[in-house]
Design a protein around this nucleic acid. Sequence first.
DNA 1: GTGCAGAAAATCGTATACAATATTGCCGTC
DNA 2: GACGGCAATATTGTATACGATTTTCTGCAC
Lengths: 236, 236
Amino acid sequence: MKSAAKAQQAEDSAETGAQQIRDAIREAIVERRLSPGTKLSESDVGNLFNVSRTLARAALQALSYEGLVSVEKNRGAFVAYPSPEEARQIFSARRLVEPGILREAAARITPDDIAHLRQLLLEEGRLMSERGQTARRAEIKASGDFHLMLAAISGNSIMQRFMEELVARSSLVIALYGQSTASSCGHSEHGDIISAIEANELDRACQLMLHHIAHIEADLDLRERKSLGLKEAFEL
Amino acid sequence: MKSAAKAQQAEDSAETGAQQIRDAIREAIVERRLSPGTKLSESDVGNLFNVSRTLARAALQALSYEGLVSVEKNRGAFVAYPSPEEARQIFSARRLVEPGILREAAARITPDDIAHLRQLLLEEGRLMSERGQTARRAEIKASGDFHLMLAAISGNSIMQRFMEELVARSSLVIALYGQSTASSCGHSEHGDIISAIEANELDRACQLMLHHIAHIEADLDLRERKSLGLKEAFEL
DNA sequence: GTGCAGAAAATCGTATACAATATTGCCGTC
DNA sequence: GACGGCAATATTGTATACGATTTTCTGCAC
């Protein structure tokens, strides 16, 4: 049943070029090749992907629904620049839903799933030790994939989509407010969570998840940096 | 701060005509003037609102992101026809997030908010006793508004938007699979939840909320109705 | 009369064109 | 030389146009 749904989605997802553009831009944002605030002009995007403004616009609109891009009337689209308040809400939402997702995932998890999770962890660890931009980008993605995999295991595609949005937006927040140059996600904590699930200690797993999210948030410096900073930048 | 955010949103929401069309169609779907499966041709929508296909298409795309409309490649857009599995996921998601939302809302609720909630309840009750299509439609909307108001009080605009999606999709599910002709939401249960919040009995309020959602779900007949039913329709 | 093939119609996917709005640079005036 | 207004430019908002795909209808063969 799930595979059938996925197959159908896969066959439909190839439907339009806008989808591909949207995915490409989203990936660029999540991997931080595009910085918050960057202008995404419709013409530029169109030229870049060799399509008309129509498709570029559709892609940008789609990204705005996910909160990754903000479009301002008659001004254009920009990579989202989440405010501190927005950042707090994103993590508040994650604290709210992730324990629940974890519980549902634990109820349906198979040994196969656990193997996949551990493999993901391994990959993540490998990337962490590597140097270089590409490795760093892959690591960022992998660390989010852990949370997404849990959502996928939960079997609820609605929550899965929601988590995808939250993880992507979290990446933006970390890019903006993250302090430590270290990994965005405490790597070992992922492993601890898996272990707790495996040991069927659900409450502990949820606690670990909450702590994990708290750790990520603790690494942020959520001070209101008003965009008026252009003045301050010269008042130094 | 919140009001500022809302004001900005309000001033931006008037930005484009597609937004208005999207809202109009969504309202029609939620109030069940548009039945699941109804075809929404881009041309028809455009003509109906006296805009070009471009805007009609944008509106339909937007609705598809919310799960209220499903667009099939080269075939067109239709009012979503949620499968039983989808319906289960929608309510599963609501069970997952609504207690959390309620807790956050309770932490920030003001006497003013409670007054608003009670007023909403009163309105709901009044509509329930009335006869007529328009009253019924207003009642459907009001019963959803209770849940949305809680999300609004929680102060997390991300969760609020998510709840808007879930409530709207729930309306579709109830239209499709609901059995009782009665209200979509047990009216009295809303009042009980408010009372529990007011009495600061948070755990009880959450329990009531879960029961409430369960009641709605219990009124559904989530049997797989294959679209092959056109045969059965004549084999009766 | 039934079934299939081909054409006609309708609808969607994408590109281009035009209108409206915001931004930028320029020039005249004070 | 600084400020304010106007024109030029760039960018978005919307409409129209054209090609591609699907659906439907028609007509011919069996």
